[in-house]
């Protein structure tokens, strides 16, 4: 029973961690869907959003604001920072590069990554800033069935709930709103969308803003879990295998990919790690991604691209 208990515990924690990876992966998917740009800067955007939130929150609390009103004002401030970032990216980087090759745009986002990382640390500091928005203790379930119970972290469950709400919100945004439909039109064909009067600049601003807000949501969960700090940018590297597995253009794919990566890496660390030296979860996610690439290159939920030669 101990073996089964441990297996379930590792599996649940892996699935929930995977949902948290999906939160970051969603930002990549949004931008890729609407503009065909692989945004390498998504991890840096999570860092920037998190630092803007936690530093403004600390400032407001220190100046006597009640905690929850400080949280709301902090979220608004961070959202404003992400809006400014989205505008600057569109105005100074992507706007001048319109009609350029996808690889050029990708390289530009690598540049954006370094600028955002440096600027965020320069403006808001490079310390570890604790963020306490959600409970970080754990539930112990089924204590009668398993010795010590099954451990489930509350922060991971919160992350799962937030991801569910976010996915539902994005689905409504894409399917039901005029801007959402315009985004889908741009994703299908830039030129056709422009010909019916959709402004590409406006759409790109909106999509970077939405990705920035998704980054802010991811920062609230990851910041509570780890403290807001530079290491958050490494989450972008965790999101890569999630995207490869789920597909670059699918919101549900980002969630399913996250679940597979989270569960796969945690189970591998717990059960394969002891035999091959441990510390394998970091690269095991890429092994899973490679397997999927070999079988289904567009990812589990990605669009199959058929090109006439």
């Amino acid at each position: 029973m101990i073996g089964l208990g441990q297996f379930l515990e590792v599996l649940f924690s892996g699935l929930l961690s995977g949902v948290l990876y999906s939160l970051v992966a969603l930002g990549f998917v949004l931008i890729f869907k609407a503009s065909g740009v692989f945004n390498f800067a998504q991890g840096a955007m999570v860092l920037l959003a998190g630092l803007a939130l936690v530093r403004s929150l600390d400032f407001l609390v220190a100046n006597g604001f009640p905690f929850w009103s400080a949280v709301i004002l902090g979220l608004l401030f961070a959202a404003m920072i992400m809006a400014i970032t989205a505008w600057m990216v569109q105005r100074f980087v992507l706007g001048p590069l319109i009609n350029q090759d996808g690889l050029t745009l990708f390289m530009a986002t690598i540049g954006i990554t370094f600028v955002l990382e440096g600027a965020a640390q320069m403006i808001f500091g490079s310390d570890v800033y604790p963020l306490r928005l959600f409970p970080t203790d754990a539930w112990f379930l089924f204590e009668g069935n398993f010795p010590g119970g099954l451990l489930v972290s509350k922060i991971d469950v919160w992350g799962g709930l937030i991801a569910a709400v976010l996915v539902a919100g994005l689905a409504v945004f894409f399917q039901r709103t005029k801007t959402g439909r315009a985004l889908r039109a741009v994703a299908d064909d830039h030129a056709a969308a422009q010909s019916v009067g959709i402004s590409l600049n406006w759409i790109w601003f909106i999509v970077w803003l939405v990705a920035g807000l998704v980054a802010l949501v991811a920062a609230t969960v990851w910041g509570t879990k780890l403290g807001v700090q530079f290491s958050i940018v490494f989450l972008a590297l965790k999101a890569l295998p999630v995207l490869i597995i789920g597909g670059f253009t699918s919101v549900p794919g980002a969630i399913v990919g996250g679940l597979i990566v989270g569960a796969g890496e945690k189970l591998a660390e717990a059960y394969l790690g002891p035999f091959i030296g441990g510390g394998i979860e970091y690269w095991f996610a890429y092994v899973l991604a490679l397997v999927v690439l070999m079988v289904r290159p567009q990812g589990l939920y990605g669009e199959r691209i058929i090109e006439r030669i």
Binding site: I2, Q6, E9, V10, S13, G14, S17, G148, L151, S153, L226, S231, I232, F234, L235, E265, K266, E269, A270, G273, G277, G278, G279, I280, E281, Y282
Partner: peptide, 21 residues
């Protein structure tokens, strides 16, 4: 028993679940 954690160390859940067991 040595339990490695990969750089930078932000993911340690499975290591600590094994310690719990």
């Amino acid at each position: 028993k040595g339990i490695p954690v990969t750089h930078p160390g932000v993911e340690q859940k499975s290591q600590w679940l094994s310690i719990r067991q």
